[in-house]
Write a protein that binds this DNA or RNA. Structure first.
Lengths: 181, 181
DNA sequence: CGTGTCATGTAATCAGTTACATGATTCA
DNA sequence: TGAATCATGTAACTGATTACATGACACG
């Protein structure tokens, strides 16, 4: 169960909210779910086709898109059942590779200065993530009122807030240690 | 640069500390680095062979192992240079898929009770990780004194402590929210 | 009229996984 | 003597990535 295609569940999950196109999904994932999920186009489109073949989604050309041939996908009952079944399965252990931490653990091989530069870059990246996260969270707070997924989305953003802050605190602390060491 | 074989760097990193066998590496990774890195045997052994072919490591049968044919790998200067070069490269963005959080974000599709069960399991798993982490950290504090990698190992364990605690706090908070919602 | 966004895809590649195989040694 | 650990590996598969390709439309 641990090496099945997970993209399909993320896709069905998006479609469980509302019908949309592959392009919509990519945009949503990039802008809103970057903290915990991502997909590449090369995965997204073939998986959508596969899901359509399996009758887990239906597809229809959006007439409003004209010659752009925008395809709107809609989840079917079978697709929803399939998604719900997965949602009930035990969660696979996540994220087993953290490159930044591997590099820190091997810090004895490089100059302190270089390691500190990595930490600063990492910290900057986290700050940017935090900013983006805050923006999305405010958006959810205001625009998703009354929607049945608002509560759950807020929870995911609480998660990323706590984790990002913990990592930032670690960066600061570690940089101080390296300065004085 | 972002889709090259990262296992080789983890392996060279271990060998930058001391010569050891593939089995040693697997054991070390499982017991000590589970929070930020893992390898499977099916990746470990072929990569070791590749590194030997490229003269980044040398291999020698451990005569003390008798018929078990334990192979001790030692990093070469070329291997060390290769590792250091990578250590200086910018760090790749980590961990882009957190299955637990994907499931929470799709919580509107399942019963609150089921979601709470996931959260409890997740929390239990984190508690176990924390316990294991504490054990390893104590081990590093006492047994690595004076070693040039002690400082850096302590930093990695500080990281996992902060992150695990943040996730645990989120679990507790989120469970409370779900109870009252 | 050119740049950016909308929109869907394919080709080539490979990193990494699961499952399996094999045999020695230790120790209760 | 049988289970656990030590120790090294292979086969088969596939999920996912990078890079590339194509064309419509909006806009300034």
């Amino acid at each position: 169960m641990s090496r099945v295609n997970k993209s399909q569940y993320a896709i069905l999950g998006l479609l469980s909210k509302r019908p949309m196109s592959g392009y919509d999904m990519k945009r949503l994932l990039d802008r809103m779910s970057g903290f915990y999920w991502s997909e590449s186009n090369a995965q997204l489109y073939p998986v959508l086709k596969k899901l359509a073949q399996e009758n887990k989604v239906t597809s229809a050309l959006d007439p409003a898109s004209g010659a752009r041939n925008r395809i709107i996908y809609t989840i079917t009952n079978a697709g929803l059942d399939f998604l719900k079944e997965w949602l009930l399965q035990p969660v696979d252990r996540a994220c087993y590779r953290e490159e930044m931490i591997l590099k820190v653990s091997l810090g004895h091989n490089i100059n302190k200065k270089e390691l500190m530069r990595h930490l600063k870059d990492y910290s900057d990246d986290l700050q940017a993530q935090k900013k983006q996260r805050d923006k999305v969270q405010r958006h959810i707070e205001t625009d998703h009122v009354g929607r049945d997924d608002q509560l759950y989305l807020m929870m995911t953003y609480d998660f990323s807030e706590k984790v990002i802050d913990a990592k930032l605190a670690w960066c600061e602390e570690t940089l101080k240690k390296l300065e004085t060491a």
